[in-house]
Write a protein that binds this DNA or RNA. Structure first.
Lengths: 346, 346
DNA sequence: TGCTGGCACTCCGCCGGACCGAGTGCCAAG
DNA sequence: CTTGGCACTCGGTCCGGCGGAGTGCCAGCA
């Protein structure tokens, strides 16, 4: 039996179904593809493919549509990467080059992804766990309050207002903060956020007894800030594309939108994909249909990849109906990821 | 002619249509409401109402549905405010009381609004134009770069990294920044952002010639930052509710989602509503259907009101199909606005 | 003058039947 | 293993008829 041809048939079915949104039959297949055999032969192949769970028919005597398993095989073994046109590459570049800061880069990226893939786009903010502390600033802001600002080398800034209860008055607090600022900076600068917490305890140790209460309070807040910094953030765009993408999702559209609004859900999803086998930089990770553990996303597929300056800082990708154009989508996600990474490196 | 009864009929039509989503006929009206007259009489009234443009029939020999004009009259003259139950009030309060900072307040508010109205919620960030500068901080962050942090008395923080090209070296920049910091703070603290720009020029004037270049650069960045601070921000939630809200919007759902994603559009809308007659604090402003100038929102209504600590800092509200339960929605928006304002005042 | 019951008319929505076409599965032959 | 042929299934669509909801109009009545 020609195993090769059966795979070709599967590929043809996926391609036709993706472009037509309609179950595809044996006759249509031989007409649109150079398979070199008759419809009857294709029918036999289709019967086997259905037996093995790669395709299914919505009802008797209808054409076949791919199952999640079928898409999976298609993505893993059959999809030819569809390179982007020069014009598209230029468009990506010029659009992203206009960005002025990190927020702007992320914002532009997510819009761009949504626009060129015509699907919903997701961009995770560069993770802070691998980012290093560049500077810590302590500013007295009247009364016994202080502003704590934490700057990372990825350009992200976390800030928090601390109400220092144990401070005696504004002047003493101001001087204490000044001392503490230099101390904290020398202790933390260059350290990664994940490790920085450990260095904090040392700072408290070497503090003279008198100031210990104040310092402890501030260090605690800084600890919180570091943890908060580790909290991931995502932005999304292009939800309207999900509506337009045909009636496929109409049933679950509500659930999908809910899932997208719950950033926690998205973050878990993205996190999981980071752990996919071979999901490093430059490698795309694809979740198809029910492979997404979240119930609301059982009819959607997610394509993501890592990006960052040199090492992977975070992930970006798109989300759409399982019936999506994988080759094009994957090419777009990959291309955008590369450009964003390049921008972040500079 | 009993003008009163005709208005009652309109009210009844709106109420029935909102709850049933189906055109309502004369017979159903007299059954469900104590109008004290026969269907035939109602029919005459309906004919007049249709003549005057308050209601319309989707097709001959169907019931009537309200037009935008009909809803407008209903909202302006017929809607009885539906007070919230004690349980609902408690729920609002406990949910909002858990917030820890401004971002959290806004986030919780928008989610809460979406949840209790079962529609899409919009919350504009407290406007900075009326906010006052509490503190300006300048931090050298290696090389010839500096971090500029602007803190307002509404608790919002803007920050920006400045690449000071005209600086000679790190040390001189550091000292220059220290001087400038105190100068800026005394010049700006307490001033409103809108006015603060004017004070900036003075600062440059009194600077010794040697540092003028550096100062000019930083002041320019600060100016940008003030302007950026004036840029409004909105957050939305509950878009999934739009899908569930029946098939009314299904046609324009895509356009609506697009409009919601374009924060610029939303901001313009909210801005316009601020200028509505009698749209002060405690006063609800309602835009019905085509009253929204944005084309994508022609089938939606928007209910907003101002909120803030004492004076109106920004607006919040919800967006849903024109066929929405105005009394309940308006009550919810009003209640949430009052609680948020109370929290911001403390 | 305004309300009411009656009546004819319109038109949407639903149901059932017939039909068409696409597609399948199977089989016998090449 | 492939192929053409053939019978079969079944969804989609196009009527035609029907029922019901609703309207507009009119004549009668308070």
């Amino acid at each position: 039996m020609s195993d090769d041809r059966r795979l070709s048939v599967l590929r043809a079915i996926v391609e036709d179904y993706v472009s037509s949104h309609e179950p595809v039959g044996s006759k249509a297949l031989v007409e649109r593809h150079q398979l070199g055999v008759s419809p009857a032969t294709i029918r036999n192949d289709m019967a086997v493919l259905e037996e093995e769970g790669y395709i299914t028919q919505p009802h008797t005597s209808a054409g076949r549509i791919p199952t999640d398993k079928g898409y999976r095989l298609f993505v893993d073994r059959l999809a030819a990467v569809k390179p982007m046109s020069a014009a598209e590459r230029r468009a990506i570049q010029t659009f992203l080059d206009g960005a002025v800061d990190l927020d702007d880069v992320v914002d532009r990226t997510v819009r761009l992804l949504a626009q060129i893939t015509r699907q919903a786009a997701v961009v995770q903010y560069p993770s802070l766990s691998r980012a290093a502390v560049r500077h810590v600033e302590l500013v007295p802001v009247g009364g016994r309050s202080a502003l704590l600002v934490l700057i990372t080398d990825t350009g992200r800034v976390e800030q928090r207002v601390i109400d220092v209860r144990s401070a005696v008055d504004t002047e003493s607090l101001t001087t204490a903060l000044a001392v503490l600022r230099t101390r904290l900076n020398s202790a933390l600068a260059g350290h990664r956020l994940g490790e920085a917490r450990d260095s904090l305890t040392d700072v408290v140790q070497v503090t003279p007894q008198a100031d210990q209460a104040v310092v402890a309070e501030i260090v605690a807040a800084l600890g919180d800030c570091l943890t908060a910094g580790l909290e991931e953030k995502v932005v999304i765009a292009g939800t309207a594309n999900l509506v337009r993408s045909g009636a496929d999702l109409s049933a679950s559209l509500g659930t999908v939108l809910e899932a997208l609004e719950e950033h926690v859900v998205l973050l878990r999803l993205v996190q999981e994909m980071t752990e996919d086998p071979a999901a490093g930089r430059g490698t795309l990770s694809v979740r198809i249909g029910a492979e997404n553990l979240h119930l609301g996303l059982a009819e959607t597929s997610v394509v993501t990849t890592g990006y960052g300056d040199g090492e992977v800082l975070a992930r970006l990708g798109v989300l759409g109906p399982t019936r999506m154009d994988y080759p094009t989508t994957m090419a777009a996600v990959g291309a955008v990821s590369r450009y964003v990474s390049r921008i972040l490196s500079s």
